[in-house]
Nucleic acid binder design. Sequence first.
DNA 1: CCACCGATTGCT
DNA 2: GCAATCGGTGGT
Length: 180
Amino acid sequence: MVARELLGRVVVVRRGPSLLAAAIVETEAYLGRDDPASHAFRGPTPRAAIMYGPPGRLYVYFTYGAHHCMNVVAREDAPAGAVLIRALEPLLGVDEMRARRGVAALLDVASGPGKACAALGVDRADNGRDLRRGPIVIREGREVAGTAVLVGRRVGIRVATDRPYRFAIAGNPHVSRPWT
DNA sequence: CCACCGATTGCT
DNA sequence: GCAATCGGTGGT
């Protein structure tokens, strides 16, 4: 599953002169027509259409009138799907990320899907970006052994809560919420 | 056109 | 525990 493979990989963002990088430490899988919690559940609506397109592109959406969330389109066998980036561990350009977030504590910089987007400056202007080309790319990072991956229920949804589609690197302190 | 509501966050 | 805030979605 792509949501698992993305753990440990590094998101790199070039914004003018600055370079930002952060390791993916928590993800969630959202499938297509058969996943009631997915934006793709109701078909290729204007917002969800990107998830029906080629994999490896960025899906960014705006929610709660305040926050952005970023996903990697990854449909595998299904007709649609994406992986939500739920938490990052800042690596490069840490001070800029702190400034973008307006917080001092490192553990508060990107420990949540909305925080991760704010830290990297990702918003709807980045929706649909091809992650193989930049300015946003995903590179190889640290290896994460299968035994070091936590699996659990997805956060913040009200349907399909029984599915074990949440993944995180065990013991990493940058995770969005305590594991249950 | 209108009403409902959310893959969250931050403050009380 | 709960309000903020606005665009996506579906029904009228």
